[in-house]
Amino acid sequence: MALLDYLHSIGIDCSSSGEVTLPGGESALLLVNPTKVECGIAEQAEEYFIILHTHTGESRLLIDIAPHAVVRMLHVMLCESDCRVELRQQTGSRCEMTSVIVAGARFDYEADMNGSHASNVLRAAYVIGGQEHARVAVRINHNTADCRSNSLVKGIAGGAAVGEFEGMVYVAPDAQRTDAVQTSRNIEIGGEARIKTKPQLEIYADDVKCSHGATVGQLDSEAVLYMRQRGLSLEQAKRLQVEGFVSDIVYQSGEFGEVLAQELASKLELL
């Protein structure tokens, strides 16, 4: 558990929730296996949440984000659990979330863009193997004009695992000038792994910029050959490629990038 070891090493106790201070001096609200959290972020405030799932359970987080507030979230699911995050964003607010899932977990994410000029960014990656089944559902409701959202979900399934992505971008009739992107990228490793992806758009406004895309592929055999020609073993080459695939998710999460990459890498070794 690279992440838990790291948090321990910087003096953060992961056995309970509470306010913590990160090495850079920034403070964050640590939520460990939260069952139900409802909170509001005040106007212009900045809040950083670290949400950890270390044992099986159900979580529901409901966060109201007042005008011009900024929320960052690091969300890590280390074991099979069920988590639902609901956000309500007011005018000019920003929310940015990185989610890393290394278990057969279920993650539901829904953001209501209720005030204009709000922005929402979600980057999520899951890696599963064996008989695991992971499901990520993302719904972004553009209820007012001039909001932006960008969701990127990457999935890697090995063994006989099943991964599912269900996405929806809803654009209300008067949510003009909405700018929404939703992307699902996936790699199946081996013949038995399955990934299903279903990105959807539901658009009722006419002046919008919305796009979605989904791919499910295998490892790039040309790249594997190239790396082996430079002396990497087949296993190293595959692993490096898969690590590279999820690197843009984790390395955007600032100081946790390295340790999250390790968390994913150690999971990849088990596939």
Binding site: D220, A223, L225, Y226, L240, Q241, E243, G244, V246, S247
Partner: peptide, 8 residues
């Protein structure tokens, strides 16, 4: 044709 390896 050198191969591109995204993220590495």
């Amino acid at each position: 044709y050198p191969v591109e390896i995204p993220g590495v």
